[in-house]
Simulated scan of single mutants.
Amino acid sequence: MNGSERVKTIRISNGTPGPEALIEWSVEDVAHISVTLYDGHNVSSSAPDLFESLIDLRRDLAARDLLLCCNGARLDCYPSRMSREMGKAQKVLVLEKGKPPSARSMVDIFGEADGAKIGTPEEQESHYRDWLDSIA
């Protein structure tokens, strides 16, 4: 990785609170995320922004029945178009049905999240579409 690299520990879960994993990310022309699990297994992904890269990682980890407990994996979080275009989706919006988002509803994509709020990428996309319908 390079000079814009960030590193953080993040909880993982298989339905119950689990151990931590090391997550490293960088954003340049593309976003790159690498996760090193407690057993030394490494999963990585590159995509146009951090959210897309995180979706790829979440699908890989789901095959091992593992969830990343971060805001970017919450059912009620999704990046705005501006966040994706200008910030490579380093921030995501916390979405409330029937309410438009505000700047105060932006949180760090890798901020810690309660495992009970985490879902699959498909569930998250469905929740996002439901939210869009609720504000239309």
Rank of each mutant, 00 (worst) to 15 (best):
D49N: 12
D49Y: 02
L50W: 00
L50H: 02
L50Q: 00
F51R: 02
F51D: 05
S53T: 06
S53P: 09
L54H: 06
L54Q: 07
L54G: 06
I55W: 01
D56G: 05
D56F: 05
D56Y: 01
D56M: 07
L57W: 01
L57G: 07
R58P: 00
R58Q: 15
R59W: 02
L61P: 09
L61A: 07
A62K: 12
A62F: 07
A62T: 04
A62V: 01
A62S: 14
A63D: 10
R64H: 02
D65N: 15
L66T: 07
L67K: 12
L67V: 03
L67H: 11
L68M: 09
L68E: 01
C69A: 12
C70W: 02
N71A: 15
A73T: 15
R74P: 11
R74M: 15
L75Q: 09
D76C: 15
C77P: 08
C77V: 04
Y78V: 03
Y78C: 08
Y78M: 10
Y78I: 04
P79K: 00
S80I: 06
S80Q: 08
S80C: 13
R81W: 10
R81H: 13
M82W: 10
M82N: 11
S83M: 14
S83P: 02
R84P: 07
R84M: 15
R84T: 02
M86C: 11
M86W: 09
G87V: 04
G87L: 10
A89W: 00
Q90V: 13
Q90M: 12
V92Y: 00
V92H: 05
L93N: 08
V94Y: 03
L95A: 02
K97W: 00
G98Y: 04
G98Q: 06
G98R: 03
K99M: 10
P100Q: 14
S102M: 06
S102K: 11
A103R: 13
A103I: 12
A103W: 07
R104L: 13
R104C: 05
S105Q: 12
S105A: 14
I109Y: 03
I109Q: 00
F110G: 11
F110C: 11
A113W: 04
A113D: 09
D114I: 12
G115H: 14
G115L: 15
A116N: 15
K117G: 06
K117V: 05
K117D: 15
I118V: 11
G119M: 06
G119D: 07
T120I: 02
T120Y: 01
P121V: 03
P121M: 04
P121A: 05
E122Y: 00
E123N: 08
E123K: 13
E123G: 13
Q124G: 09
Q124D: 03
E125Q: 07
S126M: 12
S126A: 15
S126Q: 15
H127K: 05
H127D: 09
Y128N: 05
Y128T: 05
Y128F: 11
R129P: 00
D130N: 11
W131T: 03
W131R: 06
W131C: 11
W131F: 05
L132H: 03
L132F: 03
